[in-house]
Design a binder for these strands. Structure first.
Lengths: 115, 115
DNA sequence: TCATCTTATAAGTATATTCTTATATATGCA
DNA sequence: TGCATATATAAGAATATACTTATAAGATGA
């Protein structure tokens, strides 16, 4: 009953390389828990807005992340339609929750929410 | 009853970065199935012996791989004592077996075995 | 429409990565 | 001891990566 798509080593390596960066890996873990907008990431990481934007573009180009505009903000989230979504989530699920980072943002009044 | 050591995002990123190379990822998958000597890797990959040696050194420096000399050969294998061994095997287990590569070597008479 | 806010892109730079070739080191054996 | 085999290290080159600053582009709201 195993229907999970088998990933080839080369594709796996390219995904692992993408995740093999502290900033991107943290981003992906956060996105696995909540969608998140660019300015929140900028507030979370001590890094310029273009740097954040470039990391997000790499993730989006690979397809493991998708974007959706909501008014003036663009929210990013994990893309469950990605052919190797389960490979990504298997890895991500091993990591400790980054929820506390969003809570810190909230305390600082920097959390954007459209709910 | 969960005693598995929690991995921090930064450490995870450094491991993923190591695995995020097609050659190293294939090597690690092979080593998860069998220990393997340097000359076998040289035969398996279309790459110079120093290039193979340098990849193995990165893996050894990180501790996820260990070496053991057997006569004139040095065999490399996954290191089950590594603090994040289970993180590594979780990822590796998602990949298709590379057993066939060793079988190809065998056919060519290039397989080294000390058993 | 204009000003503002949010995000993306461009160009440049410093550093990291992954090879290559040349050479050194370690082991086994005649 | 000396040669052959196996592996590691050194040095250098080409390319990739991850930032920076400056600027452009899209959306909102007065």
């Amino acid at each position: 009953m195993e229907t999970k798509q088998d990933i080839d080593v080369e594709t796996a390596a390219s995904i692992l390389k993408l995740l093999g960066d502290k900033t991107r890996l943290t981003m992906v873990k956060i996105m696995a828990e909540h969608e998140c907008c660019v300015c929140e990431f900028v507030a979370l990481f001590e890094m310029s807005q273009p740097a954040i934007s470039q990391h997000l573009r790499k993730l989006k180009d690979s397809g493991i992340v998708k974007e959706s505009r909501k008014g003036q903000w663009i929210f990013y989230s994990l893309n469950p339609m990605h052919p190797y979504y389960s490979f990504v989530t298997t890895i991500i699920s091993e990591l400790p929750s980054q929820q506390y980072k969003l809570e810190e943002l909230e305390v600082q009044g920097k959390r954007i929410s459209c709910d």
